[in-house]
Amino acid sequence: MNDSIIQASRVAKRFFVLKNKKTLFKTLKAFCQGKSLYEEFWVFRGLSFEITKGEKVALIGRNGAGKTTLLRLLSNIYDITEGELVVKKQPLVFLRLWVGLNGDLSVMDNIYLFGAVHGLERKFLDAKAEEILQIADLCHLRHVPFKELSLGQMQRLGMSVVFQTKNDFLIFDESVGNVDYEFMQKTDKYFAAIFSSEKTVIITSHEPSFLRRYCTRAIWIDKGGIRMDGAINAVLDEYEKASS
């Protein structure tokens, strides 16, 4: 039986980017000449890989290498341009931890809103709200508008709701950062639990120590293709060598 959850075969993604500054004159000129103001930009081409159920995969690469784009393709936020991509189960996606949070609403309202965006029921959150506030250390700020929190507090609230999700296929994009040491330990505990479970996890991070601790495999994306795909330590060693 094939246990793969993702099968990517020669996947390519193209965007159209502006060649130069867009002005009315240039737009009209391009229109009259039948030319385009945009040019093709291939983020990557020919990506082939397979991820099986229960794997913990780190996506690594420099800024702009296409990690987030790949995560968006896997989440069906973007369409692929070429190739074939089969994702057998809809993942629960955490690309930005403040997605779904509303600055004008109170912290409590945001727990329900953010929870709903990530598939959590109000009834379930009713029972968990106090625990979420305690984990985020925001009990005293429950009625404060969300926009008045600091960046770290916002991230803490987001993560505290994430801790309650139950999906078995998770995607994280540089989700850890801006939080204090105490909350980092709680986050570590959460990741330790999910990474030791049967869940499938794909994560990007610029913290090699974090990835070494939890992932078993790494895919290094570089210059529009996969530069290396293998055991986490081997790939990260090469990556660090190339980066230094």
Binding site: R72, S75, N76, I77, Q90, P91, V93, L95, R96, W98, V99, G100, V117
Partner: peptide, 9 residues
Amino acid sequence: REIVLNSTI
């Protein structure tokens, strides 16, 4: 934009 590009709703 944030929610459209970063969530699957």
